Simulated scan of single mutants.
Amino acid sequence: MNSFSLADEMKLPCQKMSGLAALKTRYRPFICPLDMVLAKIPEGARLYDIGCGTGALLYLALKLRSVKVAHGYDISREAVKASEAFAIKSEIFQVRHLHPEETPPDLHGYDTVTMIDVLHHIPPKLQDDFLRKTISQMDSGARLIIKDIEASKIIGSFMNQLHDLLLAREWVHQRRSSDLVQVFQSMGATVSRPILRWTLWYPHFQIVVLVP
């Protein structure tokens, strides 16, 4: 499982998408280390993806991790519409639209929740509260997998800032993984040691949080 194989898995669905959604979905594995995320999703998990975009991670988890449930939401109506290209007509795969004030949703019943490149789009004063609310909506013993941009890598995080200004037209707010570890530990959660991975000029970190 690598960037090339993951991009190849999404070739056919992306042909049914159009414009920027197709381009971002097909080539995202070369920018975002989705293989690192997938490796931490247990086989047969009940998965929920916060900020799932077009649902690419959910689709890959169905195919490569045999998850029993692949649900998620995004605040972009365009991304949710594009998720129809994956053509999975069942209750197993569901991508829905939510307004920011409706998030996070009820996450009870899911043993694995992912949050990939979402946190840095949330205003700094709201980030910790969003994480606390997310944990409170999950079952005890469930795992939260967070992948985001490592703020301590100054040049790399600046390059990601330019990336989001260009594609999302948004000024983002990256965090240090060490800070997030402390935030979750203050909630009584067990947190894995952060893993750092570079793709191109982007510094990514991943942590796995076990809900108390």
Rank of each mutant, 00 (worst) to 15 (best):
E101Q: 07
A85F: 08
G53H: 00
E84G: 07
S18K: 09
A142V: 15
P105E: 02
A45G: 13
I92F: 13
S83F: 11
L47E: 05
S157W: 07
E84M: 10
V209G: 01
S136D: 07
H204G: 02
D106N: 02
K63Y: 02
Y110V: 05
M138K: 09
Y48V: 12
R143H: 15
L6R: 01
Y73K: 05
L6F: 01
W198K: 04
P100G: 01
Q161E: 14
E84L: 13
I31D: 11
L167C: 15
C14G: 09
K63F: 03
P104F: 03
G141D: 06
R175G: 04
V181S: 08
S83H: 09
A168K: 15
A151Y: 13
I146L: 14
S18D: 15
T103I: 04
M36V: 07
P13Q: 09
F4V: 12
L144E: 03
I92L: 11
L6A: 02
I154H: 15
M159L: 15
V181W: 08
K68N: 08
A168W: 15
L166K: 14
A189K: 05
L6I: 03
E150Y: 04
K133R: 15
E102V: 05
M159F: 13
P33W: 03
V67S: 00
E150P: 04
S136A: 07
Q206V: 03
F30P: 00
V191H: 14
Q174G: 08
R175N: 06
Y27A: 05
L196K: 06
A21H: 15
M17Q: 13
L64F: 00
D35I: 08
N2S: 09
